[in-house]
Design a protein around this nucleic acid. Structure first.
Lengths: 148, 148
DNA sequence: ATTCAATCAATAACCATTCCTGATCCGAAG
DNA sequence: CTTCGGATCAGGAATGGTTATTGATTGAAT
């Protein structure tokens, strides 16, 4: 597998999703997506804005919000909310668990927890039509545990 | 069991929690708590404010927020957050599931779902010290399903 | 009754996010 | 390659829930 192929493959995937959705793949939206891919963590809209601004100082914060909303709408990225924090974005769109440190704010993934059937188990106990069920997890990261 | 005893019993419980916490049980805080008890639903701070205002038009919205924060701090009430909604308050402090209708905003409890061991199961998969794990559930209520 | 900290009412400030407007871009059709 | 119209953009104002500030008021312990 040629490493140089990867970006092209990803591009094809993304282009396809944009085409099907009717949205246009603009340079700003591509820049937002790239910024999201560059960060190891789970950045906020503001974080993404600051990264994008380095290469294109003219982008507006509102544009970043709008781009993130479009990217999420077509299923290229996902978002999660915690109290005391702006919305965090993630290139991982598969159902998974993320935990946020209540001291330093860092978010990281928790692998290996089975979330299967959560929504359907809930659906069995309510007359509502369940559209989403997500787990919000908070804690104290190893670094902050040490620094008291 | 004398029905007239109930309010007194509740009062004792609450008085005790206030005394232990060091906060003072003021008329405003009592009014906020009573307002919460009167509503069948899961009111927002604003909802509570409007109810309290009927009997005491001089209370300030900020006072309601502060009272709710104190009541939650000492474990008399609980709160939950959904996107697209202000924080909702509840006199039920036991772990339980609530679902919010994404059409009309109504919140109601989902009984009969076992949440046991959720936190500890997560704790087993992360080096973080897990402090909270809560489920945010959204859906469409029966009434809104009918009205298209 | 007095006192001092806690609480209050009123209002300003905050912050993440959304909305608005006129300018700009971009792709489809000639 | 040009034209055209709708989508998108930059910049900035507006929004809405919540928190912070301040001087006045309350109330529990002397």
């Amino acid at each position: 597998m040629n490493i140089a192929e990867m970006p092209t493959k990803i591009d094809e995937d993304i282009r396809e999703k944009f085409r099907r959705s009717g949205y246009t793949l603009t340079s700003q939206r591509r820049a937002v997506l790239e910024a999201l891919g560059e960060t190891s963590g789970h950045p906020s809209a503001e974080d993404v804005y600051l990264i994008v601004k380095k290469k294109n100082p003219r982008v507006a914060l509102g544009t970043v919000y709008q781009a993130l909303s479009v990217l999420e709408d077509i299923g290229i990225i996902s978002s999660k909310r915690w109290s005391e924090s702006p919305i965090r974005y993630d290139v991982n769109t598969k159902p998974h668990l993320d935990i946020r440190c209540i001291r330093c704010g860092e978010v990281s993934e928790i692998p290996g927890v089975d979330l299967g059937g959560l929504k359907s188990r809930i659906q069995g106990s309510t007359p509502y039509e369940v559209t989403s069920a997500s787990l919000v997890v908070e804690g104290i990261c190893p670094a902050c545990q040490k620094n008291l």
